[in-house]
Amino acid sequence: MFQIGSLTIFCGLLAQTSAQLQGLPLPIGQGLPLPGAPALPSNPTNLVANFKSGLSNGLLSGGLLDILGNLPLLDTLKSGDGNSGGLLGGLLGKLTSSIPLLNSIIDIEITDPQLLELGYVKSPKGHRLYVTIPLGLRLQVNTLTVGSVLELDVKLNITVEILAVRDNQGKVHLVLGDCTHSPGSLHITLQNGVAPLPLQGLLDALTGVLNEVIPELVQEKVCPLVNEVLSHLDVTLVHDIAEALLGQQEFVIKV
C-alpha cells in the first residue's frame, strides 16, 4: 500500500520542483495560445496609433509619394480642349478656352510630395471611422517669359470613411466607404511672396484652374490605393479596430 509518509515526501518534492521551474524560461512553443484560441485584444489606447502606423506605412510603401510626384498636371491643362472626357475634361475645356494665359506654361515640375499627420474621428453612432489624409507638394511652374518661375505650395486633405461590417460567418471586416477630397481643404500659396506683375494674371488664372483640377486628380489616384492598403492590413489589427467600431470593446482616440 501507498504509505501516507511517502505521499507527504512526494508532495513536498513536487512543490519544491515547481518553485524551481517558475524561475526558468519556458521552452519554445510553450506559453503560447492554443491553436484556434482567440488572440488577446490589443491595448485599446494603442488601437488608433497602430492603425495610423499601419495605414501610413501602407500608403508610403504602396507608392503614394510617387503618385503625387507624377500627377499629370501639365498634360491635363494642355488637354483643356475637352477631349480628356468626363467632368474634368469638360470643365477644363470651358476654363482654358477663356484663359489663353495658360498657354504660356511650358512645364510644371512637382517636387517634395509629402504625407502629413493623419487624423481620425469616430462617428457619434459608431461603426464608422473618418480618416483625414493630409497631403502636400510643391509646384514649379515654368513659363515662356525667360527667368519667370512660379513656385507654389499645395496642401490638400483626402477624407476616407471606414466602416466595420460583420459577414454571415460572424467575421468582422473593414470596408472603405466614401473617399473624397475635403471641401475647402485645398490651399495653394506662392512660396516666394508676391508674383512679378507680368505673372500676376497668369498666377490668378493658374490657381483658378488648379483649384478644380488637383482635388479630382488626387482623389482619382489616391482612393484606390487606400482601398488596397486596407485589404492588406494586419489581420489582428483589422479585427481589433472592427470590434471597437462595432462597440464590443473600448475605443480610445487620443488627440
Rank of each mutant, 00 (worst) to 15 (best):
E161L: 14
F10G: 06
F10H: 10
V172A: 08
V218E: 11
F251A: 07
G63K: 06
L197T: 11
N43G: 02
N83A: 10
G193V: 11
G58K: 03
V121H: 04
G5Q: 08
E161T: 14
R166S: 13
T132K: 08
P25Q: 04
L64S: 11
S185Y: 07
V160H: 07
L163F: 11
I253F: 05
Q20K: 15
K171I: 04
D153H: 03
E220W: 06
G36M: 10
L24V: 05
G69D: 06
I67H: 06
G90K: 01
P198Q: 00
A244F: 02
G69E: 02
V160P: 05
S6R: 06
S56E: 12
E161D: 15
P215S: 07
N211R: 15
H181K: 10
T180P: 00
L26Y: 01
P113Q: 00
L73R: 03
S182R: 11
L77N: 03
L32T: 07
Q114R: 12
T207C: 07
S84T: 02
L64R: 08
D240V: 09
D234A: 05
P44H: 09
L68M: 02
V160M: 15
G69V: 01
G23K: 12
L14G: 06
S18C: 11
I28F: 04
M1T: 09
L152W: 01
P44E: 09
G69K: 01
P44S: 10
V175A: 11
A205W: 13
K52P: 00
S182C: 08
R128G: 02
A15H: 03
T143S: 06
L137Y: 07
I106P: 01
P38Y: 10
T159I: 14
R128P: 01
N103L: 02
G86H: 01
G86S: 02
I162A: 07
I67N: 05
L95F: 11
A37S: 14
L26H: 05
V209D: 04
N103K: 09
S231W: 10
S18N: 08
G82W: 00
L135M: 04
K125Q: 13
Q200M: 11
Q30F: 14
M1P: 09
S42A: 12
P215F: 08
P25I: 04
L68Y: 01
L95E: 13
L199S: 14
Y130A: 09
P41L: 09
I108M: 05
P41E: 11
N103C: 00
N211S: 15
V222R: 13
P41R: 12
T17Q: 15
V238I: 15
I28W: 03
L186T: 10
L176T: 09
G193M: 11
S84D: 02
P41A: 12
L102G: 03
E117K: 10
A242C: 09
I110M: 08
N168V: 09
Y130V: 15
H239Y: 11
T189K: 02
V255K: 01
L91C: 10
H127A: 13
V222H: 14
E243R: 05
L32S: 08
